[in-house]
Structures are given as structure tokens and as C-alpha cells.
Nucleic acid binder design. Structure first.
Length: 579
DNA sequence: TCCAGGGGCGCG
DNA sequence: AAAGCGCGCCCCTGGA
């Protein structure tokens, strides 16, 4: 029990309380309305939080999960929390969030739920990661600047009431263990996302600029094309005999192409690539350079890179399936072309890890398909499928698997479909079942219980639309469970990295506190992470990342699933060398 | 002047 | 090899 504190007050705010608790080694679970609203300010003060429960994220999960469908929580009308949107930091924010009206209402809550029961296996690691031995509840008045007009009437959201309602919903659900795990993993992911934004991806603007200059020519004045692109534009105009053509105009270009007799019906690069016409070569090159300039050119760098770091806003659970999205800077589409600008600080390295064939492995585990699990025993699951004699080539294995998960019927995936169904009956039955459920208008769920959205009537208006919805639900169960695995992985990684402590002999990096002397996550793309680490700790980091992967598999699917999640890890000075 | 939508392309 | 899933963001266009 402690006094009411104002988050905005210097010296004795949420930051101070958090710092006290966290540095005393108390394993609190902070319950707050939105990690995005509170955690950036704490991190700015150098405070790292071990565990949290994000009411906004959990609310979304519990409102739509089929596992809570029978509970009052899912059935009530709740305009308030339903409308809550993530409080993103905005593109140039570096300071604390404007939470001056917030109050912290520290109240100890009894609540010692164990780790997940149900299908998710509980063990010591699960207990330390996901139990709620002690709680500190953060209450806050609602922000004066609501993110949507619909929220303007919400003077306050009752944090304690919502927390109680969520606990009740989980308890009353048909599978409390799964949902407890899901909320914990989602909340841990939110912490990781805030920390990655705080630390930022090391970005060398000078290398980026040199790369751009090399490809495009010197940075042009505002409103002008770089010289390489201008030269290509002239070649395109000449080849099409269209002196005033704007190559950025799709309509103009397509008309000119047709008038010139190229026979092009679209301007997609893979459709015009093989056309024999003098415009093709300069046009393809122009499109490539144009993409580089507009997506990751000088303006991008000015906008998104500050102080040697690229800081995108990650949106945990931003994808319907539960995957992360990102806003601003196209963080999750960072082209391989510019990754050479991602360089570790002096004396530091980047530990880049990605999971080999995450979604197929997740499918094998969910369905309990032992044959598929066995095929994935090595690092290359597709090679394993060939070795098992299911198909003749790695490509067939790959496209067959993609077809099974995405609902492909054409080409190679259609051809090998019967072979897959024979070799992996349980896995194929699972995805086919999800597709059939979707086509029937039913909701499907991920392994931990995230529900798929209900189709709108127009999404079921034609046979084509119905099949498309079936492909969506087919993929939802796999992609969504993959996202759950990734969040668990991330939770395990960030805990292990912190537990490694600070480097003692290495140089301190340029990352802000509390990561100045610690290995820390700086990037994450669905099934891949990048960790910025003092060089001397890189091996331990890699071990931790591997341990976290096998832990994630155990926690989700139990120790006996037989499914492994092998990683490819590269310790490199620059992200460009990762693969 | 603002905004939605189409076409296109980067990522997983 | 551009089928099948999920995104964000660019440019241009046409309508309000």
C-alpha cells in the first residue's frame, strides 16, 4: 500500500515509484491501461519494467476470443475500452509522454494465479514469466487528447474495474490457461516494443547517404529528380516517343506503352520484364530507383533517423492475426538494399536471429502431426520433406507448404496437394478445417485463443468472396499462432538479455539508458530479431536467443510436441551481412 | 484543398 | 515462378 502519486510531478511520480520497485528487485506486474502511454516515459527516466498487464491489448483479445464467447465480458457493450487505440509516440517524439494528468494509485492486489494450465505447459520458467504474484495498479484519467472523436465522452476509464472484469472473463472462459498466456505474452511484447523504440535501430546516415548517392546521384534540390532518374526518364520518353511523359503517372505511362505497341496490360515489373522493347530496360531501372528514393531516400532518413537511431512505432497486435505492425518509416519492410546502413556501435555487434520456417513448424505442433514434426527435425524443413520422400524437390516442398497454409490451388502447390495430404494428414486437416469454418461463416482461433474477425456480409456475397474468406481463416490460425510463438520468444529474449547484466570490460554504447551497457533488442520482424550487443557478450546473447526459442516452443506446445524451432543466427557488424 | 481508392512494391 | 496469406507506404487520380 502506498500513497497516491502524480505521474507528472518531478521526483515523486510514477517514474520514482517504478524505479523504487524495480530496482529493489520486486517482481511487480504493472497493470496499466496502455503500455504505449506509460512505458516510454519510464524508459526516458532509465526505468525498465519487468512485467506488465496491458489492459487495452488484453481487452481486445478477451472481447473477441471464442474462449470467452459465453462470458458477460464478451457480451456487454463497452464503448470505452473498445475504442481505445494505441497511444503512439509520434514520429519525432523523444521526450516523455504527456501524461501529466495521470495518477498512480498504488494498491496491492491479491492475486496469485499460477502459470497457464490447459494445454500450455506450466513450468518454473512459466511461473517466473507469467504469474502475477504481486500487482501494482496504475490508474489514470483519460488523456485530454483522445485519438478518436468517439472517445471524447470518456472522461475516465476505470482501470481497476477493467482489471477485475478481465480476470473474471479469463476465469469464466473455457480455457483460462491459454488466455492467461496470451495476455501475458501480448503484454510482454508491448514492453519489448516500447524498449525497441526507445533504444532504436543503430543507423548510419552517412553510409545511407553514400549508398543513395551511389545509386541515384547527389541529393537533388527539393522538387527535382535525382540525376540518374532524370536521365532514365529522358530515355523512357525517347523510347516511347512521348516527350512530355511523366513516368510517375501510371495512366500516362500505360497509355504511352500501349500506343508504342509494347502489348503491356499492366506495369508490374514481372509482367513487362520479358517484353522486347527499348523502353523496358530504362523503365525497370527507373522504377527500382524511384522505389528506393521514395521509400528509403533522403527524406525518409531526415524524417525517421535521429541521433544515429531509426525509431519506428511498433504496433503490437496491429495485424488482425496478432502479428505486429508498424507505423511510420515502413519499419517492417526495410529493404535489403539499405540494410548496410544498420551498423553496430564501435565495440558492439548485431546478433541477428531468425526462425527457420516458423509457420510450418507451428502448424506441425498445433496439429500434433508427428510426420511433419519429424520432417522439421533439421534446420531446413523443406529439405526434410524431400528426404521423407513426400515430394521430389525442395521447391515443391516449399510451394506445397505455402499452398497448404495460404490456400493455393494453382501450379506446383496444387500439384503436390494430394501428396501433402497423404504425408501430413493431421496438419492438412487442421488448415482445411479452418478454411471450411471460415467459408461457413464461423470464427476460428489461434492456439492461445485469439479469435478471427467475423466476416461482413459483403465478404460472403459471392463464391469467390467466400473462398477468399476461407483462405483468410485458413491462414489466420497459422499466422496468428506464429505471432504468439514470436511474442513468447521475445518475452524470453528480453528477460534473458536483462539477466545477463551489464558489460564490465566492453565500451558503453550510444543507446540510451537503461541499455547503455547492456545487450538489447533493437528490431523485430515477425520471425526475426536483431539484438545490439557488446561484442564480448555476443555468444551469450546467441545462447540466450536459442534458449528462448526452445522455451517458447515448450511453453506453447508442451515438452512432448516433438517440434523444434531451429534458428539461424549471425553475429555481424552490419545487418546487411545477416543473410 | 482534402481524402479515398487503385496500382505497385517492399517485407515476413 | 509472381498462385495462395498478412501488412505500410508511395504516387497519381478523380470526386467532394
Amino acid at each position: 500500500m502506498y500513497e497516491i502519486l502524480c505521474a507528472g510531478e518531478p521526483g515523486r511520480g510514477l517514474e520514482a515509484a517504478a524505479h523504487e520497485r524495480e530496482s529493489a528487485g520486486e517482481t511487480a506486474r504493472w497493470v496499466w491501461d496502455d503500455t504505449c502511454r506509460w512505458y516510454p516515459g519510464l524508459l526516458d527516466d532509465g526505468v525498465r519494467v519487468e512485467r506488465a498487464h496491458d489492459l487495452r491489448l488484453a481487452h481486445g483479445i478477451l472481447r473477441h476470443s471464442p474462449l470467452t464467447a459465453g462470458t458477460p465480458f464478451a457480451q456487454m457493450s463497452d464503448a470505452g475500452w473498445d475504442a481505445l487505440e494505441p497511444a503512439l509516440t509520434g514520429q519525432h517524439s523523444t521526450g516523455r509522454r504527456g501524461n501529466d494528468q495521470g495518477t498512480l494509485n498504488g494498491q496491492r492486489s491479491a492475486g496469485a494465479q499460477g502459470a497457464a494450465d490447459g494445454a500450455a505447459s506450466a513450468n518454473a520458467a512459466a511461473a517466473s514469466l507469467f504469474d502475477t504474484a504481486s500487482l501494482f495498479e496504475v490508474d489514470s484519467l483519460f488523456d485530454a487528447e483522445p485519438t478518436t472523436a468517439a472517445m471524447s465522452g470518456l472522461a475516465s476509464l476505470d482501470v481497476e474495474a477493467e482489471w477485475a472484469a478481465q480476470q473474471a472473463a479469463i476465469t469464466a472462459s473455457t480455457d483460462p490457461g491459454r488466455l492467461r498466456f496470451l495476455c501475458a505474452a501480448e503484454s510482454a511484447a508491448a514492453l519489448a516494443a516500447a524498449e525497441m523504440h526507445h533504444a532504436g535501430l543503430p543507423w548510419r546516415s552517412d553510409i545511407h547517404d553514400a549508398l543513395l548517392t551511389d545509386r541515384l546521384g547527389p541529393r537533388p534540390p527539393v522538387g527535382q529528380r535525382p540525376e540518374r532518374m532524370e536521365a532514365l526518364a529522358q530515355q523512357i520518353r525517347a523510347a516511347l516517343d512521348a516527350p512530355r511523359l511523366n513516368p510517375d503517372s501510371h495512366q500516362e505511362l500505360l497509355k504511352a506503352m500501349q500506343y508504342a505497341g509494347t502489348g503491356a496490360h499492366s506495369l508490374r515489373q514481372w509482367e513487362i520484364r520479358d517484353i522486347k522493347h527499348p523502353v523496358i530496360a530504362p523503365l525497370l531501372e527507373y522504377k527500382k530507383l524511384s522505389r528506393l528514393l521514395t521509400a528509403n531516400g533522403w527524406n525518409w532518413c531526415d524524417t525517421w533517423v535521429r541521433g544515429g537511431r531509426f525509431r519506428p512505432d511498433y504496433v503490437v497486435g496491429g495485424v488482425v492475426t496478432g502479428r505486429w505492425s508498424a507505423t511510420g518509416g515502413g519499419a517492417l519492410q526495410l529493404p535489403k538494399q539499405v540494410r548496410s546502413a544498420v551498423v553496430a556501435d564501435p565495440g558492439w555487434v548485431l546478433v541477428c536471429a531468425d526462425v527457420a520456417q516458423l509457420e510450418p513448424r507451428v502448424l506441425a505442433a498445433m496439429s500434433g502431426d508427428q510426420a511433419m514434426a519429424a520432417a522439421g527435425r533439421g534446420v531446413d524443413m523443406y529439405a526434410g520433406i524431400v528426404d521423407a520422400g513426400v515430394v521430389a524437390s525442395r521447391d515443391q516442398a516449399k510451394y506445397g507448404m505455402l499452398g497448404a497454409m495460404y490456400g493455393g490451388t494453382q501450379g506446383v502447390s496444387g500439384q503436390v496437394r494430394p501428396a501433402f495430404a497423404r504425408a501430413f494428414p493431421r496438419a492438412i486437416a487442421l488448415v482445411d478445417g479452418a478454411a471450411a469454418a471460415g467459408e461457413g461463416g464461423e470464427v476460428v482461433r489461434t492456439w492461445l485463443g485469439r479469435g478471427s474477425p467475423r466476416p461482413h456480409p459483403d465478404q460472403m456475397a459471392s463464391n469467390t468472396a467466400v473462398r477468399a474468406w476461407g483462405r483468410f481463416t485458413r491462414n489466420f490460425v497459422v499466422q496468428g499462432t506464429g505471432a504468439e510463438w514470436a511474442n513468447m520468444w521475445l518475452a524470453g529474449i528480453r528477460r534473458r538479455l536483462w539477466d545477463m547484466g551489464e558489460t564490465d570490460d566492453g565500451p558503453s554504447g550510444l543507446a540510451p539508458h537503461p541499455f547503455t551497457r547492456r545487450p538489447h533488442l533493437v528490431f523485430m520482424v515477425h520471425d526475426e530479431v536483431v539484438i545490439h550487443s557488446p561484442a564480448g557478450m555476443a555468444e551469450a546473447v546467441a545462447d540466450g536467443v536459442r534458449a528462448a526459442a526452445s522455451e517458447a516452443g515448450r511453453l506453447l506446445f508442451g515438452p512432448a510436441s516433438g517440434v523444434e524451432f531451429p534458428l539461424t543466427i549471425a553475429t555481424v557488424p552490419t545487418y546487411a551481412q545477416a543473410k
